[in-house]
Design a protein around this nucleic acid. Structure first.
Lengths: 122, 122
DNA sequence: CCGCATCCCTGGAGATACTG
DNA sequence: CAGTATCTCCAGGGATGCGG
């Protein structure tokens, strides 16, 4: 069972789950995907909506998501420039399982906090 | 919508989703949870099964998972010592949504790799 | 066997300033 | 507006050794 999860220096792109987790597990990818869920967004729009992300990280995150096929980027040749981001089909399909996780988190967060308190306090 | 996701320095334990993601998003928590899925495991057993985890990280990860209520730790006063880890009900319930994510990853990993190749190579 | 302490190194991420 | 480049800082995590 764990064999499937193994890191694998073996092949180019190792265990699917690790690979995916490494992407959305980072600080920002998940937030950006959620930010794009309602529809098309511009760069600064995302920046504002997410709030505490730096331009650099937003840029890097979007690039990676684009490269992995979660997000599509569209540049409009205007002045001032306008760049729009939207979820691809792949990106949208990913939000399915993510919503399950969100549901779980909302329901069980209390239990986690309680457990933390208990161990933390004594 | 994003308000719910916000970091929140405001309260002690902020957005549930961020909080949960921060935990299982780290390098190892997920692997350890999977390793415990089949049942009770000893420390070195987990170490071997996961393969490329250091003792330190296994220890830290288990502690955090224990503190958050995902994992129960049981020490047997023997020589040599024996320590057993198992999932709690909370931990097991978490594997539900996780399996969804795993499913998705298995199904869509190919598309991700393909996207990467396309952008990377051309 | 379990697992913490120490040392060390790497890369992730913020701040800032600059370009098209 | 939409980024990129540079500097910097520090937490994450590996390796190793010691203690219970």
């Amino acid at each position: 069972m764990l064999d499937q999860i193994r890191p694998a220096d073996i092949s180019e792109f190792p265990c699917p789950i690790r690979d995916v987790l490494d992407r959305i597990g980072d600080q920002w990818s998940f937030l950006v995907l959620i930010g794009l869920e309602p529809g098309v967004r511009r760069f600064s729009q995302l920046e504002r909506e997410i709030g505490d992300i730096s331009k650099q990280m937003l840029s890097k995150t979007l690039r990676r998501l684009e490269q992995d096929g979660f997000v599509a980027r569209e540049v409009h040749a205007e002045v001032p420039p306008r760049v729009e981001y939207r979820l691809t089909a792949l990106g949208r399909s990913f939000l399915g399982p993510m919503r399950e996780l969100i549901r779980w988190a909302e329901v069980n967060h209390g239990a986690i906090v309680a457990a933390r308190r208990q161990k933390g306090a004594g």
